[in-house]
Design a protein around this nucleic acid. Structure first.
Lengths: 158, 158
DNA sequence: GCTGAATCGTCAACTTGGTTGTCGAAAATA
DNA sequence: TATTTTCGACAACCAAGTTGACGATTCAGC
Protein backbone atom coordinates (compact mmCIF):
# COMPACT_ATOMS: atom_id res chain seq x y z
CA UNK A 1 0.00 0.00 0.00
CA UNK A 2 1.47 3.28 -1.11
CA UNK A 3 1.64 6.14 1.30
CA UNK A 4 2.38 9.77 0.68
CA UNK A 5 5.89 10.54 1.74
CA UNK A 6 5.55 14.21 2.35
CA UNK A 7 3.02 16.98 2.67
CA UNK A 8 2.94 20.71 2.28
CA UNK A 9 3.40 22.71 5.46
CA UNK A 10 0.02 24.34 5.18
CA UNK A 11 -1.75 20.99 5.56
CA UNK A 12 -0.65 20.55 9.15
CA UNK A 13 -2.66 23.44 10.61
CA UNK A 14 -5.68 22.40 8.56
CA UNK A 15 -5.46 18.88 9.93
CA UNK A 16 -5.09 20.16 13.48
CA UNK A 17 -7.96 22.60 13.13
CA UNK A 18 -10.13 20.05 11.39
CA UNK A 19 -9.59 17.47 14.10
CA UNK A 20 -10.21 20.00 16.85
CA UNK A 21 -13.30 21.24 15.18
CA UNK A 22 -14.62 17.77 14.60
CA UNK A 23 -14.25 16.95 18.30
CA UNK A 24 -15.95 20.13 19.48
CA UNK A 25 -18.76 19.75 16.95
CA UNK A 26 -19.34 16.17 18.01
CA UNK A 27 -19.22 17.12 21.68
CA UNK A 28 -21.96 19.67 21.17
CA UNK A 29 -24.00 17.36 19.02
CA UNK A 30 -23.97 14.77 21.77
CA UNK A 31 -24.55 17.33 24.53
CA UNK A 32 -27.53 18.66 22.61
CA UNK A 33 -28.96 15.16 22.61
CA UNK A 34 -28.46 14.87 26.37
CA UNK A 35 -30.35 17.89 27.61
CA UNK A 36 -27.93 20.68 26.70
CA UNK A 37 -29.15 22.01 23.35
CA UNK A 38 -28.28 25.69 23.79
CA UNK A 39 -24.66 25.33 24.76
CA UNK A 40 -22.15 27.21 22.63
CA UNK A 41 -18.46 26.41 22.64
CA UNK A 42 -17.89 29.71 24.44
CA UNK A 43 -20.21 28.71 27.24
CA UNK A 44 -18.48 25.35 27.63
CA UNK A 45 -15.12 27.05 28.04
CA UNK A 46 -16.59 29.47 30.56
CA UNK A 47 -18.23 26.71 32.57
CA UNK A 48 -14.88 24.94 32.68
CA UNK A 49 -13.33 28.19 33.90
CA UNK A 50 -15.90 28.51 36.67
CA UNK A 51 -15.33 24.93 37.74
CA UNK A 52 -17.12 22.86 40.37
CA UNK A 53 -15.84 25.12 43.13
CA UNK A 54 -17.19 28.32 41.59
CA UNK A 55 -15.40 31.62 41.23
CA UNK A 56 -15.96 35.35 41.26
CA UNK A 57 -16.73 37.15 38.01
CA UNK A 58 -13.29 38.75 37.91
CA UNK A 59 -11.63 35.41 38.53
CA UNK A 60 -13.56 33.89 35.62
CA UNK A 61 -12.33 36.72 33.43
CA UNK A 62 -8.75 36.12 34.47
CA UNK A 63 -9.01 32.39 33.87
CA UNK A 64 -10.43 32.95 30.40
CA UNK A 65 -8.02 35.73 29.62
CA UNK A 66 -10.79 38.23 28.88
CA UNK A 67 -11.89 41.44 30.55
CA UNK A 68 -14.16 41.27 33.56
CA UNK A 69 -16.78 43.12 31.51
CA UNK A 70 -16.80 40.24 29.03
CA UNK A 71 -16.94 37.78 31.91
CA UNK A 72 -19.92 39.65 33.36
CA UNK A 73 -21.82 39.27 30.10
CA UNK A 74 -21.07 35.60 29.59
CA UNK A 75 -21.87 34.74 33.20
CA UNK A 76 -25.18 36.57 32.81
CA UNK A 77 -26.03 34.37 29.83
CA UNK A 78 -25.06 31.22 31.68
CA UNK A 79 -27.26 32.32 34.57
CA UNK A 80 -30.16 32.92 32.17
CA UNK A 81 -29.69 29.40 30.82
CA UNK A 82 -29.70 27.96 34.33
CA UNK A 83 -26.11 26.78 34.38
CA UNK A 84 -24.88 29.01 37.20
CA UNK A 85 -26.15 31.21 39.99
CA UNK A 86 -24.79 34.58 41.09
CA UNK A 87 -24.75 35.25 44.82
CA UNK A 88 -23.28 37.88 47.06
CA UNK A 89 -19.90 36.89 48.39
CA UNK A 90 -20.30 36.83 52.19
CA UNK A 91 -16.65 37.74 52.67
CA UNK A 92 -16.46 40.62 50.18
CA UNK A 93 -19.39 42.95 49.60
CA UNK A 94 -18.08 43.94 46.17
CA UNK A 95 -17.69 40.41 44.86
CA UNK A 96 -20.25 38.17 43.18
CA UNK A 97 -19.77 34.47 43.69
CA UNK A 98 -20.61 32.42 40.60
CA UNK A 99 -21.66 28.88 41.49
CA UNK A 100 -22.55 25.84 39.39
CA UNK A 101 -26.17 24.65 39.44
CA UNK A 102 -26.99 20.93 39.22
CA UNK A 103 -27.62 21.57 35.50
CA UNK A 104 -24.13 23.01 35.21
CA UNK A 105 -22.57 20.11 37.07
CA UNK A 106 -24.48 17.73 34.81
CA UNK A 107 -23.00 19.45 31.79
CA UNK A 108 -19.44 19.22 33.10
CA UNK A 109 -19.80 15.54 33.93
CA UNK A 110 -21.31 14.75 30.55
CA UNK A 111 -18.59 16.70 28.76
CA UNK A 112 -15.88 14.77 30.55
CA UNK A 113 -17.51 11.46 29.66
CA UNK A 114 -18.12 12.44 26.05
CA UNK A 115 -14.50 13.53 25.60
CA UNK A 116 -13.41 10.17 26.96
CA UNK A 117 -15.79 8.47 24.53
CA UNK A 118 -14.42 10.50 21.64
CA UNK A 119 -10.89 9.54 22.57
CA UNK A 120 -12.02 5.91 22.61
CA UNK A 121 -13.32 6.43 19.07
CA UNK A 122 -9.87 7.64 18.04
CA UNK A 123 -8.32 4.56 19.63
CA UNK A 124 -10.67 2.35 17.62
CA UNK A 125 -9.61 4.15 14.44
CA UNK A 126 -5.87 4.50 15.06
CA UNK A 127 -4.98 2.09 17.82
CA UNK A 128 -4.03 3.00 21.35
CA UNK A 129 -0.33 3.39 20.58
CA UNK A 130 -0.87 5.93 17.82
CA UNK A 131 -3.22 8.01 19.95
CA UNK A 132 -0.84 8.20 22.89
CA UNK A 133 2.04 8.88 20.51
CA UNK A 134 0.04 11.69 18.94
CA UNK A 135 -0.72 13.19 22.32
CA UNK A 136 2.89 12.91 23.40
CA UNK A 137 4.11 14.49 20.17
CA UNK A 138 1.70 17.41 20.39
CA UNK A 139 2.63 17.96 24.02
CA UNK A 140 6.28 17.97 23.03
CA UNK A 141 5.75 20.52 20.28
CA UNK A 142 3.77 22.75 22.60
CA UNK A 143 6.36 22.44 25.32
CA UNK A 144 9.22 23.21 22.96
CA UNK A 145 7.93 26.69 22.28
CA UNK A 146 6.94 27.92 25.69
CA UNK A 147 3.48 27.87 27.22
CA UNK A 148 0.63 28.56 24.82
CA UNK A 149 -2.34 30.13 26.54
CA UNK A 150 -5.33 27.89 26.03
CA UNK A 151 -7.80 29.83 28.08
CA UNK A 152 -8.66 32.46 25.53
CA UNK A 153 -9.27 30.15 22.60
CA UNK A 154 -12.79 31.29 21.81
CA UNK A 155 -11.95 34.85 20.90
CA UNK A 156 -8.43 34.49 19.75
CA UNK A 157 -8.95 34.37 16.05
CA UNK A 158 -10.96 37.50 16.10
CA UNK B 1 12.48 7.20 30.88
CA UNK B 2 8.96 7.05 32.23
CA UNK B 3 6.08 8.03 30.03
CA UNK B 4 2.47 8.65 30.88
CA UNK B 5 0.41 5.70 29.78
CA UNK B 6 -2.92 7.41 29.43
CA UNK B 7 -4.57 10.80 29.35
CA UNK B 8 -8.02 12.22 29.94
CA UNK B 9 -10.15 12.68 26.85
CA UNK B 10 -10.42 16.42 27.33
CA UNK B 11 -6.67 16.84 26.84
CA UNK B 12 -6.79 15.83 23.20
CA UNK B 13 -8.80 18.83 21.95
CA UNK B 14 -6.66 21.16 24.05
CA UNK B 15 -3.51 19.73 22.48
CA UNK B 16 -4.96 20.05 18.99
CA UNK B 17 -6.16 23.58 19.58
CA UNK B 18 -2.94 24.59 21.26
CA UNK B 19 -0.82 23.28 18.43
CA UNK B 20 -3.04 24.91 15.81
CA UNK B 21 -3.01 28.17 17.65
CA UNK B 22 0.73 28.09 18.10
CA UNK B 23 1.22 27.64 14.36
CA UNK B 24 -1.14 30.44 13.39
CA UNK B 25 0.31 32.79 15.99
CA UNK B 26 3.82 32.09 14.77
CA UNK B 27 2.74 32.51 11.16
CA UNK B 28 1.38 35.95 11.87
CA UNK B 29 4.35 36.92 13.98
CA UNK B 30 6.65 36.10 11.09
CA UNK B 31 4.37 37.68 8.49
CA UNK B 32 4.26 40.84 10.57
CA UNK B 33 8.04 40.93 10.45
CA UNK B 34 8.00 40.54 6.68
CA UNK B 35 5.81 43.44 5.67
CA UNK B 36 2.36 42.15 6.61
CA UNK B 37 1.66 43.58 10.05
CA UNK B 38 -2.09 44.11 9.74
CA UNK B 39 -3.08 40.64 8.63
CA UNK B 40 -5.68 38.89 10.75
CA UNK B 41 -6.27 35.14 10.59
CA UNK B 42 -9.59 35.86 8.92
CA UNK B 43 -7.90 37.79 6.15
CA UNK B 44 -5.41 35.01 5.56
CA UNK B 45 -8.20 32.50 5.10
CA UNK B 46 -10.01 34.84 2.75
CA UNK B 47 -6.89 35.49 0.68
CA UNK B 48 -6.44 31.74 0.37
CA UNK B 49 -10.05 31.50 -0.76
CA UNK B 50 -9.51 34.14 -3.42
CA UNK B 51 -6.39 32.42 -4.66
CA UNK B 52 -3.90 33.48 -7.31
CA UNK B 53 -6.54 33.19 -10.01
CA UNK B 54 -9.00 35.50 -8.29
CA UNK B 55 -12.71 34.97 -7.87
CA UNK B 56 -16.01 36.78 -7.73
CA UNK B 57 -17.36 37.98 -4.40
CA UNK B 58 -20.05 35.30 -4.35
CA UNK B 59 -17.50 32.63 -5.14
CA UNK B 60 -15.35 33.77 -2.24
CA UNK B 61 -18.38 33.51 0.03
CA UNK B 62 -19.08 30.00 -1.17
CA UNK B 63 -15.48 28.91 -0.70
CA UNK B 64 -15.40 30.29 2.83
CA UNK B 65 -18.84 28.95 3.66
CA UNK B 66 -20.19 32.37 4.56
CA UNK B 67 -22.86 34.58 3.05
CA UNK B 68 -21.98 36.78 0.12
CA UNK B 69 -22.77 39.78 2.29
CA UNK B 70 -20.02 38.72 4.68
CA UNK B 71 -17.72 38.11 1.72
CA UNK B 72 -18.47 41.61 0.44
CA UNK B 73 -17.37 43.13 3.74
CA UNK B 74 -14.18 41.13 4.10
CA UNK B 75 -13.18 41.73 0.49
CA UNK B 76 -13.70 45.44 1.07
CA UNK B 77 -11.29 45.34 4.00
CA UNK B 78 -8.71 43.42 1.98
CA UNK B 79 -9.04 46.00 -0.78
CA UNK B 80 -8.51 48.80 1.75
CA UNK B 81 -5.34 47.06 2.95
CA UNK B 82 -4.09 46.73 -0.61
CA UNK B 83 -4.24 42.96 -0.85
CA UNK B 84 -6.85 42.74 -3.61
CA UNK B 85 -8.53 44.83 -6.27
CA UNK B 86 -12.18 44.78 -7.28
CA UNK B 87 -12.93 45.17 -10.97
CA UNK B 88 -15.95 44.80 -13.15
CA UNK B 89 -16.24 41.36 -14.64
CA UNK B 90 -16.14 41.88 -18.43
CA UNK B 91 -18.25 38.80 -19.03
CA UNK B 92 -20.96 39.48 -16.45
CA UNK B 93 -22.08 43.00 -15.64
CA UNK B 94 -23.43 41.94 -12.25
CA UNK B 95 -20.22 40.31 -11.07
CA UNK B 96 -17.19 41.87 -9.40
CA UNK B 97 -13.90 40.17 -10.06
CA UNK B 98 -11.61 40.10 -7.03
CA UNK B 99 -7.96 39.89 -8.02
CA UNK B 100 -4.75 39.57 -6.04
CA UNK B 101 -2.38 42.52 -5.99
CA UNK B 102 1.40 41.97 -5.89
CA UNK B 103 1.14 42.61 -2.15
CA UNK B 104 -1.44 39.83 -1.90
CA UNK B 105 0.69 37.45 -3.95
CA UNK B 106 3.64 38.26 -1.74
CA UNK B 107 1.61 37.34 1.30
CA UNK B 108 0.49 34.01 -0.15
CA UNK B 109 4.03 33.08 -1.12
CA UNK B 110 5.42 34.02 2.27
CA UNK B 111 2.66 32.10 4.04
CA UNK B 112 3.44 28.97 2.07
CA UNK B 113 7.14 29.26 2.85
CA UNK B 114 6.55 29.99 6.53
CA UNK B 115 4.25 27.00 6.90
CA UNK B 116 6.95 24.83 5.33
CA UNK B 117 9.46 26.31 7.76
CA UNK B 118 7.18 25.62 10.70
CA UNK B 119 6.77 22.03 9.59
CA UNK B 120 10.54 21.77 9.41
CA UNK B 121 10.65 22.98 13.02
CA UNK B 122 8.29 20.17 13.96
CA UNK B 123 10.54 17.69 12.17
CA UNK B 124 13.51 18.97 14.14
CA UNK B 125 11.57 18.46 17.36
CA UNK B 126 9.85 15.16 16.63
CA UNK B 127 11.65 13.59 13.71
CA UNK B 128 10.34 13.24 10.21
CA UNK B 129 8.65 9.91 10.86
CA UNK B 130 6.60 11.17 13.76
CA UNK B 131 5.43 14.21 11.83
CA UNK B 132 4.29 12.23 8.82
CA UNK B 133 2.68 9.68 11.15
CA UNK B 134 0.86 12.48 12.92
CA UNK B 135 -0.38 13.91 9.65
CA UNK B 136 -1.49 10.50 8.43
CA UNK B 137 -3.28 9.78 11.69
CA UNK B 138 -5.13 13.08 11.72
CA UNK B 139 -6.12 12.62 8.09
CA UNK B 140 -7.42 9.16 8.95
CA UNK B 141 -9.51 10.44 11.85
CA UNK B 142 -10.95 13.21 9.73
CA UNK B 143 -11.69 10.84 6.91
CA UNK B 144 -13.36 8.32 9.20
CA UNK B 145 -16.12 10.73 10.10
CA UNK B 146 -16.99 12.27 6.79
CA UNK B 147 -15.73 15.52 5.39
CA UNK B 148 -15.23 18.29 7.92
CA UNK B 149 -15.64 21.70 6.35
CA UNK B 150 -12.43 23.60 6.87
CA UNK B 151 -13.34 26.71 4.98
CA UNK B 152 -15.44 28.38 7.66
CA UNK B 153 -13.02 27.99 10.52
CA UNK B 154 -12.80 31.66 11.50
CA UNK B 155 -16.41 32.08 12.46
CA UNK B 156 -17.27 28.61 13.50
CA UNK B 157 -16.94 28.90 17.22
CA UNK B 158 -19.21 31.87 17.32
C1' DG C 1 -7.76 54.99 62.33
C1' DC C 2 -7.59 57.71 58.04
C1' DT C 3 -6.65 58.49 53.67
C1' DG C 4 -5.32 57.27 49.05
C1' DA C 5 -4.87 53.50 45.95
C1' DA C 6 -6.50 49.20 44.13
C1' DT C 7 -10.22 45.99 43.12
C1' DC C 8 -15.18 44.49 42.31
C1' DG C 9 -18.91 44.37 39.11
C1' DT C 10 -21.69 47.02 36.03
C1' DC C 11 -23.14 50.46 32.45
C1' DA C 12 -22.46 52.51 28.02
C1' DA C 13 -20.44 52.92 23.57
C1' DC C 14 -17.70 50.84 20.16
C1' DT C 15 -15.44 47.00 17.03
C1' DT C 16 -15.39 42.69 14.35
C1' DG C 17 -17.19 39.24 11.80
C1' DG C 18 -20.91 37.16 11.15
C1' DT C 19 -26.36 36.85 10.13
C1' DT C 20 -31.14 37.71 7.63
C1' DG C 21 -34.06 40.56 4.66
C1' DT C 22 -34.55 43.56 0.82
C1' DC C 23 -33.43 45.50 -3.41
C1' DG C 24 -32.26 46.85 -8.43
C1' DA C 25 -29.74 45.30 -12.16
C1' DA C 26 -28.27 41.69 -15.09
C1' DA C 27 -28.28 36.89 -16.69
C1' DA C 28 -30.31 32.43 -17.45
C1' DT C 29 -34.18 29.69 -18.47
C1' DA C 30 -38.77 28.12 -19.94
C1' DT D 1 -40.55 37.25 -24.26
C1' DA D 2 -41.69 36.54 -19.52
C1' DT D 3 -40.27 34.52 -15.42
C1' DT D 4 -36.85 33.02 -12.34
C1' DT D 5 -32.29 33.11 -10.66
C1' DT D 6 -28.04 35.21 -9.50
C1' DC D 7 -24.97 39.19 -8.38
C1' DG D 8 -23.47 42.49 -5.11
C1' DA D 9 -24.76 45.95 -2.10
C1' DC D 10 -27.66 48.26 1.59
C1' DA D 11 -29.67 48.16 6.22
C1' DA D 12 -30.54 46.28 10.57
C1' DC D 13 -29.32 43.02 13.77
C1' DC D 14 -26.53 39.64 16.82
C1' DA D 15 -22.66 37.65 19.55
C1' DA D 16 -18.57 38.19 21.83
C1' DG D 17 -15.18 40.85 22.56
C1' DT D 18 -12.96 45.74 23.67
C1' DT D 19 -12.07 50.45 26.37
C1' DG D 20 -13.63 54.02 29.47
C1' DA D 21 -16.17 55.54 33.38
C1' DC D 22 -18.31 54.79 37.63
C1' DG D 23 -19.92 53.98 42.64
C1' DA D 24 -18.99 50.89 46.17
C1' DT D 25 -15.98 48.36 48.76
C1' DT D 26 -11.45 46.69 50.47
C1' DC D 27 -6.59 47.10 51.22
C1' DA D 28 -2.14 49.34 52.50
C1' DG D 29 0.84 52.95 54.39
C1' DC D 30 1.49 56.00 57.51
Amino acid sequence: MMRRVDRYGFELPLLLAGAFRQMIDELHRRLAGEGHPDLRPTYGFTLQAIGLDGATVSEVGRRLGVSKQAATKTVAKLADLGYVTRDQDPADARAVQVAMTPHGRDMLQRSARIFDDLRADWIRTLGRDRVTALEDDLAKVLQSSGPVPLHDLPGWLR
